[in-house]
């Protein structure tokens, strides 16, 4: 038990911080309840999915700057195809979009492995490419979403009203995809290439292949994130939101070391909810939304700065 607590101090700290924030939200706004939690969870969902994707790539020692653009591609593809489609068709469309996400991520990973260009340059170039693809598919926000998809993330769970459906959705999706990977050989390999690619290579880990898989998983989560944008707004958004910086900030705040190899998935998810709750509290305190955006941006930049200082320190010692 004590060892478990020692290993998860950071995550536990984040959970406590989130609890404090939620309690203070209740103090600011006494009628904060199930509907407030629900809107918080729904707003956090795309950020959380993007963060999980980013966390996987960062754990594997990379970074994916094209994540927001891939989300835009997934969002518009889903929205354009789903407009006027029947329920049965839309299930196929959702599966197709998820495959598309996997493919986009795999292309990123493949380009990094084959061209030997650093990940940060490749994914920057691909950021432009995916943005262009999203604009080609849909020039302005539009399209539609299947009603069942929209119902997935809205409202509470029958029986437990306070638990938002979006949180359950997030938990199930992440558990279904991440837990089996984490427990398998693949999970170990992801962490191995993150902490030392050369050592991993010498111990027989197929580094290139594992890296491609990490980026493909990131693409899959980006597609899920893009679909969740369409889910909550009902339309496709060709212009990517501020998911890139937000996901990097949440990953750093969540205790994953930029550079790879150390951290988990739960921490970053908690960090997303912390950042979103801060945003919501600012809105509840009736701070101008633009000012709130500035404060939020400043917090994220400060977190990234702090993380970078820590990473440099860790590197030196």
């Amino acid at each position: 038990m004590k060892r478990w607590i020692d290993a998860n101090t950071w995550t536990l700290g984040l959970a406590v911080l989130l609890a404090i924030l939620l309690v203070s939200t209740k103090l600011i706004q006494p009628d904060f309840g199930a509907s407030g939690l629900d809107s918080l969870a729904r707003a956090a969902l795309p950020f959380a999915l993007a963060t999980v994707g980013m966390a996987i790539v960062v754990l594997a020692g990379g970074i994916d700057l094209s994540i927001a653009a891939m989300m835009a591609v997934a969002s518009v593809t889903g929205a354009v195809l789903m407009e006027g489609a029947s329920d049965g068709q839309s299930v196929l469309i959702v599966l197709g979009v998820l495959l598309l996400g996997l493919a986009m991520g795999a292309i990123n990973g493949l380009l990094i492995t084959v061209s030997k260009v650093p990940d940060i340059v490749v994914t920057l170039a691909m950021l432009f490419v995916w943005q262009g693809v999203a604009l080609l598919i849909l020039n302005a926000p539009g399209g539609g979403a299947a009603p069942w998809l929209r119902a997935l993330s809205a409202g509470g769970i029958p029986g437990i009203d306070w638990l938002p459906r979006a949180v359950v959705f997030l938990a199930i999706i992440t558990a279904l995809i991440w837990v089996p990977i984490r427990r398998s050989k693949l999970g170990l390999r992801l962490y191995a290439i993150g902490s030392d690619p050369l050592a991993a290579f010498r111990s027989g880990v197929p580094v290139g292949q594992t890296r491609i898989i990490a980026y493909a998983l990131c693409g899959l989560f980006a597609a899920l994130g893009g679909l969740s944008v369409t889910m909550s707004t009902g339309i496709g958004e060709p212009i990517p939101g501020p998911y890139l910086l937000a996901s990097v900030a949440a990953v750093v705040l969540g205790g994953v070391v930029l550079g790879g190899g150390r951290g988990g998935i739960l921490g970053p998810i908690l960090a997303v909810f912390i950042l979103r709750t801060v945003r919501m509290d600012l809105t509840l305190l009736s701070v101008d939304p633009n000012v709130a955006a500035i404060i939020e941006g400043t917090i994220m930049v400060a977190v990234v700065m702090f993380g970078a200082v820590l990473a440099t320190r860790g590197h030196k010692t």
Partner: peptide
């Protein structure tokens, strides 16, 4: 515009 962005990205790469 979309095509142009794709082209720019590919050129950089």
């Amino acid at each position: 515009e979309g095509g142009r962005r794709i082209l720019f990205g590919l050129i950089i790469l």
